[in-house]
Design a protein around this nucleic acid. Sequence first.
DNA 1: TTGAAAGCGCTAACAG
DNA 2: CTGTTAGCGCTTTCAA
Lengths: 338, 338
Amino acid sequence: MKYGMKDIAKRANVSLTTVSLVLNNKESRISTQKKQEIKQIAKEMNYQPNSAAVLLSKQISYNIGLIVPDITNPFFTELTQFINRKLRENGYFTLFVDSGNSYLGEKQAIQNMISRGVDGILLVPSSEFFSADQDEVEQLFKSAGKPIILLNASTDMDISYVNFNNVEGAVMATQELVDHGHRKIAFIKGKDHLVNAHERYQGYQDGLRKNHIPFEQNLVFEGDYSSESGYHLAPQILKHPEITAILSSNDLMLFGLIKWSKEQGVDIFNRFSMVGFDNTPYTEIIEVPLTTIDQDADKMSADAIKMLLRKIKGKRDVTRQIVIKPKLIRRKSVKFIK
Amino acid sequence: MKYGMKDIAKRANVSLTTVSLVLNNKESRISTQKKQEIKQIAKEMNYQPNSAAVLLSKQISYNIGLIVPDITNPFFTELTQFINRKLRENGYFTLFVDSGNSYLGEKQAIQNMISRGVDGILLVPSSEFFSADQDEVEQLFKSAGKPIILLNASTDMDISYVNFNNVEGAVMATQELVDHGHRKIAFIKGKDHLVNAHERYQGYQDGLRKNHIPFEQNLVFEGDYSSESGYHLAPQILKHPEITAILSSNDLMLFGLIKWSKEQGVDIFNRFSMVGFDNTPYTEIIEVPLTTIDQDADKMSADAIKMLLRKIKGKRDVTRQIVIKPKLIRRKSVKFIK
DNA sequence: TTGAAAGCGCTAACAG
DNA sequence: CTGTTAGCGCTTTCAA
């Protein structure tokens, strides 16, 4: 059986108000004795507040929406786990949606979440997000009426976000390769409209320039961050005998490449030096552990949550953006050129 | 600005009821014209129903709770993604919680979800779940007052579940190894109280017996399904020169073993034939692709959802259990003994 | 120190 | 065919 405040009030011979007051630890001059008693009864009856009712009257749900493009991507998996835990520690619950990497999915998710009364939303935008009509997006955000924060993305729009410094990361990665004597470095990029993809591409070019290595368009290959796309790109890359190293916009695409090589019996690790992006966990168990750019997902999440909770608590926080420094993790996939 | 039914009613010069009726597509003799008009206005005002209010009056939230022990485990990741999508297709939203593999986490999650008015819960129990007091668990389920279904687990309690036939899977795996000439087969088991772990252990023993191979207690090692536990078990296993093959209760523990070997420079793939459990995606990109037992997570999820929605819709469904046949996926980690 | 009552946005009898 | 009204469970102002 499910009991409500009314039942407790009856059992304790007090009014509904009294019960509400003590169960919410509100300032009041109710005798300590009565307080104890009421709390005791509530416990006995296994009282659980009906949050729909609370939401309706307080307009606070203690629910936060989380939208990621693809939970299957280990980087997002870790992020989700961390956010879920952190939110719970702060008394919030997670409404989770995997947008299926589509803007439509994101839009529906946002509207649904708002309709469900979330107090705020953490959005890791898909690659489609930024190719959607900017005005529509801003409209969507405004009409939500609740704070929404972007993770793992930057934007010119008047929206708060926390992101990594992707340019810097890619420069570091490129430098690492150059330092090992590589000059013909292939780059696997993501779709252009994704700001992160763009920035990593930018960093790759900057890194080349810094070292006076000419940029060659035919050494860049475009995937979509999925393992499959790396898989499909593999044969094209292998066609270039001059390439000695590969920098990939993320680990996953490298995994696809590796899978293909495995199937074809080519010794990819011997053929190329490689560095990835994301420091995805499986990077450590593959044949030769991958050197990669670590994006501290936990820090990003923590910052985003802090920001969101501040906004929720009504601190008239202006739009802010946080940019986090990436780190190079050296493992075994980069070798000196022969 | 956020508009409600009242605003629409005012704008359309009709009563609240009328609006509610047409927006919910209820049987009514309201002129088609008025219906169109109202819907039009609703669209213009970007009306989004307040689901707290709906829930409060209808007692239906169209929210389903999903609890998994560890979203980081690729098997659960895939499950989560599938469930999330499937539920959305059915008009439901997912309240997600990573229980951190603890019974306390699960209990809190359940209570929280109920308090938030979910219509039902899909629970993938942690390894702690079954070591909790059975009576308390049954009590918890009863007091929830909403249908709860177990995934990836079996139980004697009066609870519906869908699970794989783990015994059969483990027998198949063992047989595969035996068929390749192995007789000294190590087994990495999970914690005993987890029924699945127990069943896989059982299957391993059955498989041995069927082939008249004596069971040896000192060839079995206990982990907890995490990659770390495999990592820690590695040195112990390597101490046994007689072992030629390893059957692991899941892929993850094998991954841990591989990681350790990598660090120590031992050629683990050459040393042992191995078969895992779960057909986790990364199984394909590691040095030598893993032979494993495939558990069709999508089928399991689909069955569980179907079952749950039936219960929610009030079909007085009795407690039912579904058991799914596993499949052996042959890759490269099993070789004939020399 | 405590209680009555209005209201949050929507649904569903019941009346008209 | 459409409107009135009484809740759903809880919070909060105001009064006692």
